[in-house]
């Protein structure tokens, strides 16, 4: 089941998050909804990201693919170059560079879509709270039996109200 708890203060939210984690919940069980980004210190609600690795991987992949393709194409249709080499990194370096960058752009974008969960299948049962300009909603996923404990933790931390959603 899910608990939806509304907060008005970031400090209260931090207290709640630390207490919930102490009670055995993982960051995967927790989600905060807000109209603007909220930044926490390290260790409160970490969301490890592999986006920069993905960007580098995408860059290397498309850059290499483009360069190999140019190499293949130049040899596939071999023109008489009058002294110039058939394939030269110098003469096609721009293409390697631009395609490397394009690879990074695409990788970042798709990784963003994936990591943010926008293109992943969502749990249809998980409720999405309505958020207003001034509020932050914390969604907690927990077993039905322990719900009371968590509601108590949330209240102690200073939430405005808590709803239970089956």
């Amino acid at each position: 089941m899910f608990l939806i708890s509304e907060f008005r203060s970031k400090d209260a939210l931090v207290v709640a998050l630390l207490a919930l984690k102490k009670a055995g919940l993982t960051p995967n069980d927790l989600a905060i909804f807000s109209e603007e980004p909220i930044e926490f210190r390290k260790g409160i609600l970490d969301r490890p990201s592999h986006m920069s690795k993905a960007a580098v991987a995408g860059a290397v992949c498309l850059g290499t693919a483009a360069t190999s393709f140019v190499y293949y194409a130049q040899h596939n249709y071999e023109i008489v170059t009058g002294g110039m080499p058939i394939f030269s990194f110098w003469a096609t370096g721009i293409i390697t560079y631009e395609m490397t960058m394009l690879g990074a752009i695409f990788a970042t974008f798709f990784w963003f879509l994936w990591e943010s969960g926008l293109i992943r299948k969502r749990d249809p049962a998980a409720p999405v709270p309505n958020i207003g300009p001034a509020s932050m909603s914390l969604r907690v996923r927990c077993e039905t039996g322990r719900a009371d404990t968590f509601v108590e933790i949330l209240r102690a931390a200073g939430c405005i109200k808590t709803e239970r959603v089956k």
């Binding site: 008489v80 009058g82 002294g83 080499p85 058939i86």
Partner: peptide, 8 residues
């Protein structure tokens, strides 16, 4: 001239 004009 490595790959230059083939001798014709």
């Amino acid at each position: 001239m490595a790959t230059g004009n083939p001798v014709k």
